[in-house]
């Protein structure tokens, strides 16, 4: 009897979870639709978009520089040992560059953005919601989607690829530093090898990913912030959920995009 009740309760929980997920996807889709529809109508908050680009994008520069540099250094260090066993240590630059442009640059940059920016957006909008600032905005005749959500999405879609390029660049320099100082490889060898890894398709593929990731992070951050319930505790919950959901989505979408980019751009 107890076993049967447990099974029924388990099913009920599962159904609740599935229903919750469907509702959240529906609400998120609706939010995105309102953003897209709002793009064609006035007013447009370009000033606010620039401010958000500065705040979300330029404000993340330091952590992206550090992430890129250390990733490049670690990549060079680890790969050089393995490559040495096969006598091809000279392609260290190529390996570091390809790894960064294709995968690590976009993913690590956007995971950092999910942590810093996604959480910030959710916390800010969540706080505004629980302190009735969003209602006040609506009462004063402003559409919060246009004023708050659209500028943040546009800002992140624009700055995530730019930050990724910077991450890739400093990563390659980090690898160069390790090649020269620890692996005692001439800079010219490393750079020549790195240059071989760079072609148009790789770069396009490496820019598509952060653009999509930026969109995903901003949408999830805004959605979680605007669906905050339960006062200040709820703000904390929304912030955590935003980081977790955006990080998972970045990795999941990365897989799908990688498959797509390889099929469309990189396969001979």
């Amino acid at each position: 009897m107890d076993e049967k009740t447990d099974t029924q309760t388990g099913r009920l929980h599962l159904m609740n979870l599935i229903t919750q997920i469907i509702i959240q996807v529906q609400e998120l889709t609706l939010l995105i639709w309102r953003v897209v529809r709002g793009l064609t109508r006035r007013p447009r908050y370009w000033g606010e978009t620039i401010r958000q680009m500065d705040n979300l994008g330029f404000g993340s520069l330091v952590i992206i520089l550090l992430t890129g540099t250390f990733t490049g250094m670690v990549l060079a260090l680890n790969s050089a040992n393995t490559l040495q066993k096969f006598g091809v240590q000279s392609v260290t630059g190529q390996l570091v560059t390809t790894s960064l442009i294709r995968e690590l640059g976009p993913v690590l940059t956007c995971l950092m953005l999910a942590g810093r920016v996604g959480s910030g957006i959710a916390a800010e909008l969540g706080s505004m919601l629980v302190s009735e600032q969003i209602d006040a905005m609506r009462a004063l005749g402003t559409d919060p989607i246009k004023k708050l959500v659209t500028p943040r999405i546009l800002a992140l879609v624009a700055t995530a690829p730019a930050l990724t390029v910077i991450c890739d660049f400093v990563g390659v320099l980090g690898g160069l530093l390790i090649s020269i100082t620890l692996l005692h490889q001439p800079a010219s060898v490393y750079l020549a090898s790195a240059r071989e890894a760079v072609d148009y398709n790789e770069i396009i593929g490496g820019l598509i990913k952060p653009t999509v990731f930026g969109f995903v992070i901003a949408c999830i951050g805004c959605y979680k912030g605007l669906s905050t319930t339960g006062g200040t505790v709820g703000v904390g919950r929304s912030t955590t959920q935003s980081v977790v959901a955006s990080s998972i989505m970045v990795i999941a979408v990365d897989f799908l995009l990688s498959k797509l980019i390889i099929s469309l751009l990189l396969e001979p």
Binding site: M128, S131, E132, Q133, A136, M137, A139
Partner: peptide
């Protein structure tokens, strides 16, 4: 319409 919110709801 003008609305006065409970805690003011000023933009922080």
């Amino acid at each position: 319409i003008g609305m006065v919110f409970q805690e003011g709801a000023l933009f922080d």
